[in-house]
Amino acid sequence: MAAKVHVTATINGEPVEFLCEPRQSLLEVLRDELKLTGSKEGCNNGNCGACSVILDGLLVDACIVLGAEIDGCSVETIEGLMDSEGLHPLQQTFLENAALQCGICTPGFIMAGKSLLEKNPQASEGDIRHWCAGNLCRCTGYDKIVRAILDAEPQLEVKK
């Protein structure tokens, strides 16, 4: 077994240090080492998006990033979305639109939605469908998820 790597990063705004094996993915580090189990494993090969996190402003699948790669980086996960005012607008619109059934894909979709709306605050239905094509949901047929992201747009605008 190779020696563990010492990594320093910022996760959800907090400085974090950890040791990880070179072969451990960011998802394993988040879930097993840092106990941030909100990011889910659906496929472990970048196909389903259940582990979507934002890495230095870029939406990534944490299962295909190595833990050691995030040294010096900033990572946002679902656990960091709430602020002092409560739920993030996307979290609220997902609830109001019944945009989750089993909920396993929800953290990934919310992170994907956040990343999209940061880049494109007035994303159309088509933009959302295109952007979220890397996130699989087997329960909802996506209809209510797309509506929840659309609904969050004006609320995020107000928040700004």
Binding site: R31, T37, S39, K40, L87, Q91, F94, L95, G103, T106
Partner: peptide, 18 residues
Amino acid sequence: IRHDGVDKVTGRAVYGAD
């Protein structure tokens, strides 16, 4: 709004692998 909703949009709900 569903009773388990907040747990599920915040990543706090505990699933099998968690």
